[in-house]
Design a protein around this nucleic acid. Structure first.
Lengths: 233, 233
DNA sequence: GTCGAAACGGAACTAAGAGTTCCGTTTTTT
DNA sequence: AAAAAACGGAACTCTTAGTTCCGTTTCGAC
């Protein structure tokens, strides 16, 4: 490493030494590029692509973020937060069903325009307590939405929070395999899904997957943020 | 290549010279192993895994099948055929709705126990006219199922064949990300999906994706059967 | 039973990614 | 103008996967 280079973190911390003007500008560009690129390509997006989009060399990127993970995490948490905000907003609807419907619609729209949203649902950064906490809040907000919609009689009684996961996993696949070429697929699927949630005339459902299993299943492949494939031996 | 080695094809053709006994036995083992392995891992399954499962060296495998693609294709077409059989059987139900429902259920079950089924739906082998033809037959059989179920008034009128694709893509994702850990997910999802198809009280759907676009979307990534990453320059 | 052809196994080679480092050059700052 | 900081991107490493090569083993015809 060169003399002047210094390891620092993506999130400027209190008391961090000020960056040179060009460095600060590049830091912002990198974060912005990361947002864009992983929205399109998902968290697996290669570093080179991010650097290119930011108009910066990879070296520059690594000077600011000690590794790929550090960089991704910044953006990842941002998204999780937005996810939570969506749930909370939905809760403010006075019509509970409308609130729930809006929630699903917004989530699907987010999935369609940003692949990371799906990843937030699915993946765990290694050791990110903050993400765990955000997920917890998302879930409990979501539960309140569901309960309210059921009480109102607008949502089938045997619907469970796990079903939301099923729908989102399903919709993610629709968007990922069909989204670009056949964008009508997403709204079409969502509309069908909503019809499945009506209480009237609903056939009884087989039992829902256990939540803990579901969580385990979704967090399974730590494939996401691989550490050190190359580099230091 | 050694003197004795000879390029031949996976499917024994008329007039092909007879294989030695051990060779013939290995050839069968390889095909069987391929079936098993790609059922579990999908068409991307590495050749080494297949060879290992067959209890055979990779060399042996390549002596019989000039390349990976050749091998996969054999099994792939077998599956596509079974897919078609399922559709045809469903057509024999006297109750059209039952037929259609059974069709979907069988398809989902097949997806759950064999990843290749999804691949058959999604992917094209390079230059496989036979697969194209099978697909065509599958589609037309499926269309008859749908028409009959609608006429009987058991299936919502705005349902289209494209919706079957949506459901299968969605279900494939459910099985792939949740299947192992939370096997209840698949039947649960299917039951919800079937409820979405009821004609009574169905909300009007947004327009379906155009079939040609859908086909294009699904056949997009020719990622599947990559040719020559290494090997002959 | 022997011997040549056929087949075998699996190490080694090639290619394509992808993350990380290194260092000669450029830009800021004082 | 000089020193410090930052820059860019080629080069290096590791991984994964398809394919070939060749010394060794097995089969089958005589």
């Amino acid at each position: 490493m060169n003399k002047g280079d210094r390891i620092s973190q993506g999130n400027v911390q209190a008391g961090a030494p000020k960056l040179r003007k060009d460095a600060e500008r590049n830091r912002r560009r990198i974060i912005e590029a990361t947002r864009e690129v992983i929205a399109e390509l998902g968290v697996h997006a290669p570093v080179d692509e991010i650097a290119k989009r930011a108009g910066v060399g990879v070296g520059t990127l690594y000077r600011r973020f000690p590794d790929r993970t550090e960089l991704i995490e910044t953006v990842f948490l941002e998204r999780a937060q937005r996810y939570l905000d969506t749930a909370r907003e939905a809760l403010r609807h006075e019509d509970a069903w409308e609130g729930f419907r809006t929630y699903l619609e917004r989530l699907c729209a987010m999935q369609a325009e940003d692949r990371v949203v799906t990843d937030v649902l699915t993946l765990n950064l290694p050791d990110s307590p903050r993400l765990v906490e955000l997920r917890y809040r998302i879930h409990s907000t979501q539960n309140r939405l569901i309960r309210a919609a059921k009480q109102q009689g607008a949502l089938r009684a045997d619907f469970t929070p796990e079903d939301v996961v099923l729908l989102l996993v399903a919709h993610a696949a629709i968007v990922q395999s069909l989204g670009d070429e056949a964008p009508e697929s997403s709204p079409r699927f969502l509309a069908l899904a909503l019809d499945a949630l009506r209480p009237d005339g609903a056939a009884p459902l087989p039992s829902a997957p256990r939540p803990d299993r579901l969580v385990k299943a979704m967090q399974r492949p730590p494939v996401v943020v691989r550490r050190r494939p190359g580099g230091t031996p």
